[in-house]
Computed example of a mutant assay.
Amino acid sequence: MAKEVLQISIIFMIFIGLFLVTMQIVSARNLKKTKEKIKVLQEALKPGVEVMLLGGIYGKLVKLNKDTALIEIADNTEIKVDRSSIQAIVKN
């Protein structure tokens, strides 16, 4: 009886280990895809492009610096945001 319980426990531990390894692989692949998507977005940014910020605010990119961006959200209304807060380029 004890021998059977030990065998079942070992099989269960192997199953848990395989599950954890699989989850790590899937997580790493998703992280790589997300980083690539962000890189492509950041490279496509240029003044005059319509963008959407993380908070759902839409505006036109006026100026782009290394870490920040100036976004015009209305006539004569510009906000300075972190460059990473730009979520998407709006396609008209």
Rank of each mutant, 00 (worst) to 15 (best):
F15K: 13
S27R: 14
I79S: 03
L70I: 11
G55S: 08
T68I: 08
L6T: 10
K32W: 04
I10Q: 15
G56E: 03
L64V: 07
G56V: 07
K32R: 11
M23Q: 15
I71A: 03
S27Y: 08
L61K: 00
R29M: 10
A74T: 02
V49A: 04
D82S: 12
I10K: 15
D67W: 05
K91A: 08
L70C: 03
V51W: 05
Q7E: 15
L45P: 00
Q24V: 06
V62F: 04
Q87P: 01
N30E: 14
L54I: 08
E78W: 06
L64G: 00
I8M: 14
E50C: 06
E50P: 05
R29C: 04
L20Y: 11
K63C: 01
T68Q: 13
I11T: 13
I16M: 15
K32G: 03
M1S: 14
I16W: 12
G59D: 01
S9R: 15
Q87H: 10
L53P: 06
I79V: 10
I73L: 00
Q7P: 01
A28F: 11
E4W: 10
V49W: 05
K3Q: 13
A88D: 10
I11W: 09
Q42G: 02
I86Q: 01
V51I: 09
N30Q: 15
D82K: 13
E50D: 12
I89V: 14
A74H: 06
L6A: 14
I89E: 00
G55F: 02
L61E: 03
L54D: 14
I73G: 00
I25W: 08
E78A: 03
L54S: 11
K63Y: 06
F12D: 15
F15H: 07
I86F: 00
L31C: 04
M23S: 12
D82H: 08
Q24C: 08
T22V: 07
E72H: 02
L31T: 13
S84N: 11
G56N: 07
T77H: 05
V26I: 12
A28P: 00
M23E: 13
M1I: 06
D75C: 01
L54N: 13
L53M: 08
M52H: 01
P47A: 10
A74L: 06
T68G: 03
F12L: 13
G17Q: 03
K80F: 06
G17R: 01
F12C: 07
M23F: 10
A44E: 14
G48T: 05
K37F: 04
K35R: 14
A74P: 00
V26Q: 13
L41M: 04
V40I: 14
T34N: 09
K39L: 09
I8A: 15
I86T: 03
K35V: 06
L54W: 02
L31Y: 09
I8R: 15
K32E: 14
E50V: 07
L64Y: 03
M52N: 03
